[in-house]
Computed example of a mutant assay.
Amino acid sequence: MPDLAYEQLRDKEQMSGLFIINDRMPVRQAIDELLVLVNCSEQSEWKGVVLYLPL
């Protein structure tokens, strides 16, 4: 997914944000990180963004 997201950004195509979660991250931590993002930001802030978690 990240490669495709970067291709879309490079080609100036519209893209919703993409959150990439480390597969070694505990599920509870991933949920907590996503909840922080949902509660402390607006959906529009993530357009065209690739964000790796943990923060």
Rank of each mutant, 00 (worst) to 15 (best):
P2R: 04
D3F: 11
L4H: 01
L4I: 13
L4D: 04
L4C: 06
L4K: 02
A5H: 00
Y6M: 08
Y6S: 04
E7I: 12
E7F: 09
E7N: 08
E7K: 13
E7W: 10
E7P: 02
Q8T: 07
L9I: 15
L9S: 07
L9M: 15
L9Y: 10
L9W: 09
R10W: 07
D11P: 04
D11S: 13
D11I: 09
K12Y: 14
K12A: 13
K12Q: 14
K12P: 02
E13W: 07
E13H: 05
E13V: 11
Q14K: 11
Q14C: 04
G17A: 03
G17H: 00
G17L: 02
L18G: 01
F19Q: 03
F19P: 00
F19D: 00
F19A: 04
I20P: 02
I20Y: 00
I20C: 14
I21A: 00
I21F: 01
D23T: 13
R24Y: 10
R24V: 06
M25S: 08
M25V: 10
M25Y: 08
M25G: 05
M25I: 14
M25P: 04
P26Y: 01
P26R: 00
P26I: 09
P26T: 02
V27G: 00
V27E: 00
R28F: 11
R28N: 08
R28C: 03
Q29G: 07
Q29L: 12
Q29C: 07
Q29P: 05
Q29T: 12
Q29D: 14
A30R: 02
A30N: 04
A30M: 11
A30H: 02
I31P: 07
E33L: 05
E33G: 06
L34D: 05
L35Q: 15
L35K: 15
V36K: 08
V36N: 09
L37C: 12
L37T: 03
L37S: 06
L37G: 01
V38L: 14
N39R: 15
C40M: 11
C40G: 14
E42F: 14
Q43A: 13
S44I: 12
S44V: 12
S44M: 12
S44Y: 12
E45A: 11
E45G: 04
K47P: 02
K47Q: 14
K47A: 10
G48Q: 01
G48H: 02
G48T: 02
G48A: 00
G48W: 05
V50S: 00
V50G: 00
V50L: 02
V50Q: 00
L51Q: 07
L51D: 01
Y52R: 15
Y52P: 05
Y52D: 11
Y52E: 13
L53Q: 02
L53T: 06
L53G: 01
P54L: 03
P54F: 04
P54R: 00
P54I: 08
L55S: 03
